[in-house]
Design a binder for these strands. Structure first.
Length: 680
DNA sequence: GTTAGGG
DNA sequence: CCCTAAC
């Protein structure tokens, strides 16, 4: 299919890897829907991908949206975005405050009478400007620039005072200012920035609420309300310095390269990423898997496989950083396995896609999601993007773009790595019962599809976004490594900012039953924007719940256990056990001597032994921590030496003994097993 | 679920 | 201690 990208929203960053591709026909459908959204406000989604948007803009025509979209209700969380690519983002409070808000705001449907409402629809701020910028076409919404502007103005008026001074006016969107992918905005005066910031935040909130409540703006106030409120307030992070620059970032095509570059850099920077990666692999992989079960076998029982698949996919992205070859390989493997979606590391974008053959991956970078229900009773989910909870990034004005990118990257990795789980929202309501089927949940119903949403939430959060809103303090800051970003030291991590949570990402959904003849949309669609993935759960349940992996559920678990140095007595017990049992039988060692030490796993014991051996070999001056009696260390060395030599035999012997086939042929055995030290 | 090793 | 690969 030929797709031409009419509008390119600049922001593609941080998208979750995979993006299913739908048939054009399906896509088209979306067109109609797109217009609809009611309030989807998600101001927070920082990372929202605007990406998907690109595709459909052409559809602006879609008038239909009103019909479908309006109904949307309530908790916008669940609000599903229809294909509307054009997203209007609502400003986050911050945005507004900064003044960037207006810029961010888009009226997706300028034409529609209710444009005002629409404005609220998207809260994604940062991305928007880019969209505009990238394309000079404002008309993709079917509106011309003028219309858009007027719409923007309307919004501006609505938000009025609050937005003052902070941002530029929409009009600017058309100018170079907006065109730049990145938008840097200075906070209010450096001094007192925080205060004002905070105030603004709240004020913004009020505004939003008002707006929400205002029929004029939103008819689906509920949606907006919920959405906005939740999104806006759940987490509050403040910039550390007023003087710092805040920015909305956008992903660019160079992402991958960047990552690569970054990775190759000093560990200082890599470290956090690596850490995050690992976690991501586990956490996200699982989720992805869940989200996109294999087409054929959907039983979740196979989650393991799924995980692996995901794992692979995940790795792909990361691998890319290291080796393109690997990437390719992995991908192939991934696909060969029949895994669901393509995905790259998730954070890289187009660049990746180009590389690997088949261009499979290309599509995965978009951030938004779509959901399609096909006639075959399968529900196809195309999650174009997961919005990452709001991130605040502070970097000095003198920071380089490169460092900024890295900082953002780090922030994202940290955020994700800290553990998040996926939530499913149907009509604004969280589906907590993972055992419900899609059917039961209504996820396969057209009406509900439109109201389907996926959220990425920090695992620690238990409360609904709304709750968080009320009690921002509840949101737990995600633990972020304080690893300094390398590179010129210009970057500052997000360490101190509390990461917002509860980001919802909207899923665009299309209920596609028919194929539409006209491919308007297709034209607009970016080839890489979506990959069609057919998800054909064998049983509805497969998709019903996103069984969140236990791990992802509790970030705490993700957290490294507290260090508990072995005491001398423990060391002694360990040494004794090893002397007797030998190495390689850690489980037995555990049972023998640490049965009741719940905090000591056999792996711990094994590790401790490893360190003991090392400690014993180094000079006392090099040792750290609580000194281990020399004699114990000697025993360690002796036992180590002994077992190193006799392990194999011993094992064989043990087996023999077990079988009552005792053989004394081996000299070392008898003695060794019992008193290794003696032998030595 | 265990082991063995690298990180 | 964590994470993985191999069993």
């Amino acid at each position: 299919m030929v797709v031409k990208r009419k509008v390119d929203y600049g922001f593609r960053g941080f998208q979750v890897p995979f993006v299913p591709r739908f048939p054009r026909s399906v896509r088209r459908r979306s067109a109609s829907k797109r217009l609809t959204k009611d309030g989807r406000a998600c101001a927070f989604e920082i990372l929202a991908s605007v990406a998907g948007k690109l595709l459909l803009e052409g559809e602006s025509s879609a008038s239909s949206n009103a019909s479908e979209g309006n109904p949307q209700p309530a908790n916008s969380q669940g609000v599903v975005e229809q294909e509307r690519q054009v997203e209007v983002k609502l400003l986050k409070g911050e945005e507004i405050h900064r003044g960037s808000s207006l810029e961010s705001i888009f009226l997706s449907e300028a034409n529609s009478p209710e444009s005002g409402q629409k404005c609220l629809e998207h809260a994604e701020t940062d991305c928007v400007p880019e969209c505009i910028s990238n394309n000079n076409n404002l008309d993709f919404w079917g509106k011309d620039e003028t219309d858009v502007k007027s719409e923007i103005f309307k919004l501006e008026n609505k938000f009025g005072q609050h937005s003052h001074g902070l941002s530029e006016v929409p009009e600017e969107s058309s100018d170079g200012n907006v065109k730049n992918g990145f938008r840097l905005e200075r906070g209010a005066s450096s001094s007192g920035f925080k205060g004002s910031y905070l105030e603004n935040k709240f004020s913004v909130k009020d505004q939003l609420e008002r707006c929400v409540n205002s029929p004029a703006l939103v008819d689906t106030k509920n949606n907006v309300n919920n959405t906005y409120c939740r999104k806006l307030f759940p987490h509050i992070s403040f910039p550390r310095n007023g003087s710092d620059i805040k920015l909305g970032f956008r992903d660019d095509d160079e992402k991958l390269l960047r990552c690569k570059k970054v990775c190759t850099k000093p560990k200082a920077f890599r470290s956090p990423q690596l850490i995050a990666r690992r976690k991501l692999r586990k956490i996200l992989a699982y989720k992805y898997w869940k989200a996109a079960p294999k087409l054929k076998d959907c039983e979740y029982s196979r989650s393991e496989e799924g995980v692996k698949s995901l794992y692979h996919s995940r790795k792909i992205g990361y691998r890319f950083e290291r080796s393109q070859h690997n990437t390719v390989f992995k991908r192939r493997k991934f696909f060969d396995r029949g895994s669901v979606l393509t995905s790259d590391g998730g954070f890289s974008s187009d660049s990746v896609s180009n590389s690997p053959k088949k261009g499979i991956d290309r599509n995965n970078h978009r951030s938004s999601a779509k959901l399609h229900v096909s006639k075959d009773s399968h529900v196809k989910f195309s999650i174009k993007s997961f919005k990452i909870p709001e991130l605040f990034i502070d970097v000095p004005e003198t920071a380089t773009v490169g460092s900024l990118k890295r900082t953002v990257m780090e922030a994202v990795m940290t955020l994700i790595g800290s553990g998040m789980h996926v939530g499913v929202l149907v009509q604004g309501k969280k589906v907590r019962d993972d055992n419900r089927t899609l059917l039961q949940t209504g996820i396969c119903h057209k009406e509900k599809l439109n109201k389907l949403g996926f959220t990425l939430e920090p695992s620690s959060i238990q409360d609904s976004p709304a709750d968080c809103l009320r009690n921002p303090s509840q949101s737990q800051p995600i633990r972020s490594p304080k690893t300094p970003v390398q590179d010129s030291g210009t970057t500052h991590g997000l360490q101190n900012s509390s990461m917002p949570i509860n980001t919802e990402n909207f899923v665009e959904s299309n209920y596609e039953l028919t194929t539409s003849p006209t491919d308007t949309i297709a034209d607009i669609t970016t080839p890489d924007s979506r990959a069609l993935v057919s998800v054909q759960p064998r049983s509805p349940e497969s998709l019903a719940g996103f069984p969140v992996s236990q791990k992802s559920k509790r970030p705490e678990l993700v957290q490294r256990r507290t260090r508990r140095p072995f005491s001398v007595s423990e060391v002694e017990a360990l040494v004794e056990a090893v002397e007797e049992l030998g190495t390689g039988r850690w489980r037995d060692v555990k049972l023998r001597s640490f049965e009741n030490a719940d905090h000591r796993t056999y792996v711990d014991l094994k590790d401790k032994w490893k360190t003991l051996v090392h400690t014993a070999k180094i000079s006392p001056q090099q040792r750290r921590g609580e000194p281990v009696p020399e004699d114990l260390l000697n025993r360690v060395l002796a036992a180590h030496a002994y077992w190193s030599h006799h392990q194999a035999k011993q094992q064989g012997k043990n087996r023999a003994l077990t079988m009552n086939t005792r053989e004394d042929s081996d000299e070392t055995l008898s003695v060794g097993a019992i008193q290794p030290l003696v032998i030595m």
